[in-house]
Amino acid sequence: MFWQQMVNGITLGSTYSLIALGYTLIFGVLNIVNMAHGEIFMFGAFVGLMIAVHANVGLAGALLAAMATGAVLGYLMEVLALRPLRRRKVSELAPLISTIGVSIFLESLALRLFGAEAQSFPPVSSTQVFDLAGVKISMVQIIILAISCGLMLVLRFWLEKTKLGKSIRATSENIETANLLGIDTKKIIVLTVMLASALGGGAGVLVGLAFNAIEPTMGITMGFKGLAVLILGGLGNITGAMVGGLLLGVAEIFSVAYGVSSYRDAVAFGMIILLLFLRPEGLFGSKEQQGGR
């Protein structure tokens, strides 16, 4: 029973990690919290669903389409809602408000385009269930775990080893210095937002698979969870986002398994309020404030 819940929790948590990575990447480079990430994620899920239903391209096609949608939306958001704010000196809360605007715009657009009802995801994979020493793990769960862990590993490697990845890290360390060192930070910012949004779109498909139902309002609920993980892991901390997502997934599944299922959506914020009392910089954050102020 315990290990069964653990497996379920980690599967769910891996999708949370993927969502939180989007927040973390953008926070790292731009120092803003992208409140529209949840809605980009939701759009990814819907486009993935449409593609899977109508185009018959299988899971890979749906995933790619969702990621492409995410990237396009991310680009539009960067150009329309974030770039105009960078040109002038505004408070750090201005981008937050601006992306809240994007979030409710996208949500109501989705309500118009896709309708308010929950739609079920088509069976894009086999429903086979494996039995590992009493722990049941379904094919869907394996696929979700494989894709999310795969994406995270690729991202990790890419940020660590490639030139572009290094430029992203340099930019998130200090944007002026990166600029002086000849990095085209404007391009890096666009790239990061697109990358983060593509990850969000991909996560949309995986969550659609996991819950087998998607609806326009899930952007808000899942977005909140991503935010919780962002704080849990420490703002802008990539390892923190990955581990924090898994932790939240496990905590949620256990809260459902041991009685308080209807409070599931409150677990995330219960955790962060507690954490903010004990360790406000997050589980993996450093004590120093980033960039002085």
Binding site: L80, I97, V102, E107, S108
Partner: peptide, 12 residues
Amino acid sequence: SMIYGAILVLMM
């Protein structure tokens, strides 16, 4: 909601 969202972005 779309109008509200647009107002937020434009104001900022």
